[in-house]
Design a binder for these strands. Structure first.
Lengths: 258, 258
DNA sequence: GCGACACGGTTTGTATCCAACCAGTAGAGG
DNA sequence: CCTCTACTGGTTGGATACAAACCGTGTCGC
């Protein structure tokens, strides 16, 4: 059974990913609640989670705004993924017994099976499978803190939406990387696994190169720079400026493929 | 003005850090609400945030449990800090204009001023200042995603409580590192800054070595392995096992210094 | 004409209420 | 005596109601 909070979270994430809620737009709790068919309470919790993941920004007594992404942000995101996931896979290589190879190979099989004749819905599914693959892999790192960080770098609209932008050839190579990583891990070769993972992620970033042009500039908040006065952060110093929309904004594209 | 949610969050974090809520113990919303002087609603939101940061685990219809930490977890945490913060400081070195040197030097001054005759309360304050220092520093990295990850690695009980365990000599060296990092950044030397940061964090980890023995084993949940059935994670595969309490548990020590 | 102030509408923040769910327990049956 | 089952107490999940804060607008004064 799925909880109301997860329902609201999925509605929000899908809305942001699909472009229904473009960067710079305000998310009114009442509207989202109505769309998800739940009350405001779980919507609020979902919004707070999305803020922790960097997808929205909540301003007290004003509401939640979808944050805009730039090509630079995409670079930064992949920087972090390379660091964290290469570290994790290197650790996993030294802890082969903790790796759930059957599940991982099964994920590879399922992805390969889906790819050749994938429609839009299948693409969505491929994205989830890929996230599952990377998560299952990192679980073997034995680093719980790393697992806590993963949702923030894997749950972004890009990683989810990327599969609508990759070409089939790109995806074939990516899935090949997946299998090669598993081979490296079965051989217990951390260097090998690290290298493939690095290539895998850099290639993934590269094949999103064209994605920047798919974003439509945000209607709202042109030149708007929001200063969040009291973001619930752990620091007592003021929160950083977050600029929304515009510039080379990458507003998570639309559902229809390019 | 401080919101009820932040109030509840601080009460919880302080309670976990101080050992009032030891690992393995259940956090009943009603109790926490009464202690914080608010209603259950903001307490719930605070609990969810703490779960995202890995401090508690929420089980549906059962409640929130304080998770136990091991010496291994501490190693893993510092692994991540080294990776992320060295990356950030290296980037910052290339973007000197974005570094808020006045604020950083001021933080250094305040820490040096507090250290010589620091009582328990001052130690707490020192911990916050140190977190502020690192956060302010990383803000200059220009990587928003990195900033999103920081609370998870800086907000743990250890980083906060560490200052009650470090010796004064250790802290003096640490503060020296802080200043040296700033010097390196002013010189625009990323290698230098990276090196000092790496040393700074490794030294910090090392001088927490004795902290393991300060932890009392959790009373509850001996050998208890909780399988979280539906943790709100981004993966559709089952969540990892999280073991609570006992073993070489590191239950955030007590308020009185060693 | 311009600026400041006050008021109303709208949205969020918090408290309270009801329902669903889990765990432990008492009791019946084997 | 053990085991299985149904009940009950207590806690959380979610919905609703109320209070506080912000924004925009309109009016008054300069």
């Amino acid at each position: 059974m799925t909880s109301a909070r997860e329902l609201a979270y999925e509605v929000l994430q899908r809305g942001i990913t699909s472009g229904q809620y473009p960067p710079g737009s305000w998310l009114r709790e009442e509207d989202v609640a109505a769309e998800a068919g739940v009350s405001r309470t779980p919507v609020r919790e979902a919004l707070h989670r999305l803020q922790a993941e960097g997808l929205v920004q909540i301003l007290r007594h004003r509401g939640a705004m979808v944050v805009g992404w730039t090509a630079e942000d995409l670079d930064h995101l992949y920087d972090l993924r390379v660091m964290l996931e290469c570290y994790g896979v290197r650790r996993a290589a030294a802890r082969c017994d903790d790796i759930d190879f059957p599940a991982l190979w099964a994920l590879c099989d399922e992805m390969d099976e889906l790819l050749p004749h994938a429609d839009e819905h299948d693409r969505q599914r491929l994205g989830q499978l890929c996230i599952d693959f990377h998560t299952t892999l990192q679980r073997a790192s034995g680093n719980r803190q790393l697992l806590n960080l993963l949702p923030t770098v894997l749950g972004t609209p890009f990683v989810r939406q990327a599969f609508h932008h990759h070409t089939t050839a790109d995806l074939e190579r990516s899935f090949g990387h997946h299998r090669e990583i598993l081979e490296a891990l079965q051989a217990g070769d951390g260097d090998w696994a690290d290298g493939v993972m690095r290539a895998h992620l850099r290639h993934g970033r590269r094949s999103l190169q064209g994605m920047e042009r798919h974003g439509q500039p945000a209607e709202l908040g042109s030149e708007t720079v929001i200063r969040s006065p009291d973001q619930p952060t752990l620091s007592s110093s003021p929160a950083p400026d977050i600029q929304t929309g515009t510039r080379a904004a990458l507003p998570s594209a639309r559902t229809t493929p390019g």
